[in-house]
Measured scan of single mutants.
Amino acid sequence: AEIMKKTDFDKVASEYTKIGTISTTGEMSPLDAREDLIKKADEKGADVVVLTSGQTENKIHGTADIYKKK
């Protein structure tokens, strides 16, 4: 799966169907969080990951919607 910015995804959204939401939390780098989200998306058969939230304090927390091409 590839990560797309919401603004970029909005241009092609009609080509995809939302298949779920994924999240990651833990003591990790932003890059590790990104890789974890991609891994989870791949496991669910998603083609595209669109980040919906991200937070960093002591731990990273990120959520994303996942989509499959129609």
Rank of each mutant, 00 (worst) to 15 (best):
S23I: 09
E57R: 03
A46L: 01
K5I: 13
I22A: 01
G26Q: 11
N58T: 10
T63V: 09
I60G: 13
E2Y: 14
S53Q: 11
H61K: 11
G20S: 03
Y16K: 01
L31Y: 12
K40A: 05
E27D: 09
D36M: 10
R34I: 15
D65P: 03
T56D: 12
D42Y: 11
G45M: 05
K68E: 04
V50E: 00
Y67M: 02
E57I: 09
E35R: 14
S14Q: 11
A1V: 14
A46R: 00
I19K: 00
D47K: 03
T25E: 13
D42T: 15
K69T: 03
E43Y: 07
D65E: 09
K68D: 02
D65L: 05
D10P: 02
R34G: 04
K68H: 04
K68P: 01
G20L: 01
G45K: 05
D10R: 05
T7R: 10
K40N: 03
V49A: 04
F9G: 00
L51S: 02
T7W: 09
A46F: 02
Q55P: 11
K18F: 15
N58H: 12
L51M: 12
K39V: 05
T24P: 04
F9N: 01
N58C: 12
K68N: 02
T17N: 08
I60H: 10
V49H: 00
S53L: 14
E57A: 13
K59S: 14
P30V: 08
V50F: 00
E57K: 05
A64D: 01
D65K: 03
K44M: 15
K11T: 06
G62E: 12
T25Y: 10
K40V: 06
T17C: 15
T7L: 10
I38P: 02
E2M: 15
S53Y: 15
L37F: 05
E43I: 08
D36S: 09
I38L: 14
D10M: 10
K70R: 09
G54F: 15
S14R: 08
S53A: 10
L37H: 00
Y16M: 02
T17F: 14
H61G: 11
K18G: 03
G20V: 02
K44A: 15
K68Q: 05
I19Q: 00
D42V: 15
M4H: 02
L51K: 02
I3T: 03
K39R: 13
T24Y: 11
G26M: 12
S53V: 12
I22M: 03
I22R: 00
I3G: 00
M4V: 07
T63N: 07
I22S: 02
S23A: 10
F9I: 00
T63G: 04
D32H: 09
R34T: 08
I19C: 06
S53I: 15
E2A: 12
A1Q: 02
D32C: 13
K6G: 06
E2K: 15
T21F: 07
K69Y: 07
T56R: 10
A46N: 00
E2P: 03
V50M: 02
S23T: 11
V50D: 02
Q55V: 13
L51P: 04
A41L: 01
I60N: 10
E15W: 13
E35P: 03
I38A: 04
L51C: 11
E27H: 12
L31K: 14
P30M: 12
Y16P: 02
E43D: 09
S23D: 08
Q55L: 12
F9C: 03
P30R: 03
A1Y: 02
K40I: 07
E2Q: 15
A13P: 02
T17R: 09
D47W: 03
K39Q: 08
K70N: 13
G62N: 10
F9P: 01
K44Q: 12
A64Q: 03
K39P: 02
S29A: 08
T7P: 08
I38M: 07
S14M: 09
T17I: 15
I38C: 07
K40G: 03
E57D: 11
M4N: 01
K5W: 14
L37E: 00
D8L: 05
D32L: 12
T25P: 10
I66E: 02
K69F: 04
T56Q: 10
I3S: 02
D36Q: 10
L51N: 03
V48R: 03
E27V: 12
L31F: 10
G45A: 05
M28R: 07
D42L: 13
V12T: 03
T7I: 11
M28N: 08
Y16L: 02
E43P: 01
S29N: 09
V48W: 01
I3M: 07
D8Y: 05
P30F: 13
I66Y: 03
I19E: 02
D10S: 06
T25A: 14
K5A: 13
A41G: 03
V48E: 02
Y67V: 00
D36W: 15
G26W: 10
I19Y: 01
K40R: 09
A13M: 07
T25V: 15
I3L: 08
D36N: 08
N58E: 13
D36R: 05
D8W: 03
